[in-house]
Design a protein around this nucleic acid. Sequence first.
DNA 1: GGAGCGATGTCCT
DNA 2: GGACATCGCTCCG
Length: 192
Amino acid sequence: MRVARGILGKLLVSTAGPRPLAGRIVEAEAYQGADDPAAHAFAGKTARNAVLFGPPGFAYVYFIYGMYFCLNVSCETDGTGGGVLFRAVEPLDSYAGLPGGIAEMRELRGLSATSPVALIASGPGRLCQAYGITRENTNGLDYTNPASPLRIEDDGYRVGKILATPRIGVRKAAERPLRFYLADSVFVSGKR
DNA sequence: GGAGCGATGTCCT
DNA sequence: GGACATCGCTCCG
């Protein structure tokens, strides 16, 4: 939960493709371990969720509803399951002086050049599509390694007000306010 | 603009 | 066999 709040405002950067893709994280959800029935880590370690039980700062990607991927970061200390789901980013058009990130994201999403930027990565499935993330190419990557193709970076941005609500799309422990987002952002998923 | 629903793979019971 | 941390399309008002 501390991580889910703290990660807001940071940059999610991918250098896996032809152009760097960057977005500011505006929405995230916390999933705890043994005491959180909604968490993938709840039922214990399996081949699928093993990354959640490893050291913090690694990418956990899973496939859902037969069509979409969702991106997480492992959070708890080595041996304990827990993670944070990235739900939305504000796409940034240039990174390290290299422009074109938004056009690239639109292409990956199959969106037209005039589609609203707010629809590019406002939702966990959309976000993965916009970054070209699959379980195969991303699961297990180290976000904190400068040489990693997928990183979380702090560019000094100061976040404004953070709001907490129940998590989206979960049926178990549905009342817990573990979804966090930047109140001022128009790039969060769902309403606004 | 909102509710309903189908698509479709993988995991767990 | 059913549930699933989703999305976008269709139908209705």
